[in-house]
Design a protein around this nucleic acid. Structure first.
Lengths: 247, 247
DNA sequence: GAGTGGTCTAGACCACCGC
DNA sequence: CGGTGGTCTAGACCACTCG
């Protein structure tokens, strides 16, 4: 229970991050019970031969991830597992579904450049009518339709996305590999609604069935928006989980 | 533009927090343009006569709140305003509505102790059939019904909630003032659905109208769940906004 | 090369908690 | 009272970006 490994002083990975991972695997592999007190900052300094700054940075990371919580004057404690999972994290449809343990897929309906609408242009912070890359797909899980997804992308050289295959590849994976674009954060709006005729057909729904509308604006690491996505999910098969924290 | 105020060395408020607020009001009051570079860490150390630890802690706070972003080797920059607002923050219905600029209200339908159901008991981590305080309200904005809200509360002495007036007072305000209970974080699940007969009546809806179902489990500062709330919002009048971040 | 933020050290004092 | 986490100092070296 006490053997935890060591910090590799020759590694390019920062000490605090190595320590964070050591503690995370220690908590998870030993199934330490919720509300159990873990090592104090002082103990960790001594045990790993690092300064308190490093230890505190590691513990802050674990706290941010919901793995531990800290109480002034008492100590640090293992958080209940419910609070660990499902942190509101920026993911692609593909990653989201893989995390839920199902097999994602896609059927492309439309893949063209076209002039951007007023509302989307505003969200992308570009002039109206600018040509943007537009991709409409039916998203599948285990070969059943789950959502209708329309993405609008705007960045230098986005025309070359016309050549890509989006039935078998993740959009975000292509953006990262070929264009060096990494999504950093996103705003997402959720609204309950009723399926429109076209959606009932594409998603195998009945008229009047509920759907969840989701509109996302995605920003890169320089905080410039590069993507606006509009999604319609089947209401009976999709549930969104958020973790809210006190300010 | 350069006058920013000073850190009060005799105040009990930490330096880093004073500095964070000084910088925040400076950015907001001067309407500094997005992507403008702000002072470097070194400049701030000198200007305010504090160590770099304090400056970095203040800047980390501003970054967490979405007010600035930092790029290694380049500097710290003002973030675009869109990303500042609407951080996914744990709020009560009352606070939520006040932030949206409307007047919240409530009409109490049911306010009793009753044995807890199986599913709610599990979320509250208590034995089934335990008596819990149960409060059902129609929530109003500007005197129009917006949501049907059912709260289940479980903690020592929760029976005395029977005496409280929940038409004119916020539940969370009462919990904080009388019981020293502060919500710390919450899990929330969102699902699109169709109004049931009882809901159409209470919320002035037509059969078949869309609604948003929300189930919340709220945890206190010791990470123990004390409240489960089930909500049904009118789909046409409610939209949920989330901010997602890269892991 | 000069300036930036990222990491790290080795100390210090404090408020808070439980005993 | 001793132990805990919260705050703070005054340094240091590094990798990165830009001119």
């Amino acid at each position: 229970m006490e053997v935890l490994g060591e910090i590799d002083r020759s590694s390019p990975i920062p000490y605090y991050y190595q320590l964070q991972e050591i503690l995370q695997t220690w908590i998870e592999e030993n199934h330490i019970s919720p509300h159990t007190q873990i090592f104090s900052e002082g103990e960790l300094c001594e045990r790993f031969g690092v300064s308190r700054t490093v230890v505190r940075q590691a513990l802050l990371g674990l706290e941010r991830d919901g793995l531990i919580y800290r109480v002034k004057g008492r100590g640090s404690f293992v958080a209940p597992p419910k609070l660990r999972q499902q942190i509101t994290e920026l993911t692609s449809f593909t990653q989201d579904m893989q995390k839920r343990g199902v097999r994602p897929g896609a059927r492309v309906l439309y893949q063209e450049m076209h002039p951007v609408s007023e509302t989307v242009a505003q969200r992308l912070q570009i002039p109206p009518q600018t040509p943007v890359f537009c991709l409409e797909r039916v998203r599948l899980v285990n070969d059943q339709p789950l959502a209708l997804q329309t993405a609008h992308l705007s960045f230098d050289g986005c025309e070359s996305l016309l050549e890509e295959d989006f039935e078998n590849q993740s959009l975000y994976a292509i953006l990262a590999a070929r264009y060096g674009i990494t999504p950093f954060q996103a705003e997402q709006e959720y609204e309950a609604s009723i399926a429109r005729p076209r959606e009932t057909k594409l998603l195998n729904l009945q008229p009047g069935d509920p759907v969840m509308h989701i509109c996302r604006v995605t920003y890169d690491t320089d905080r410039h928006p590069f993507e606006v996505t509009q999604c319609v999910y089947r209401g009976d098969k999709y549930r969104f989980v958020a973790l809210l924290r006190k300010a």
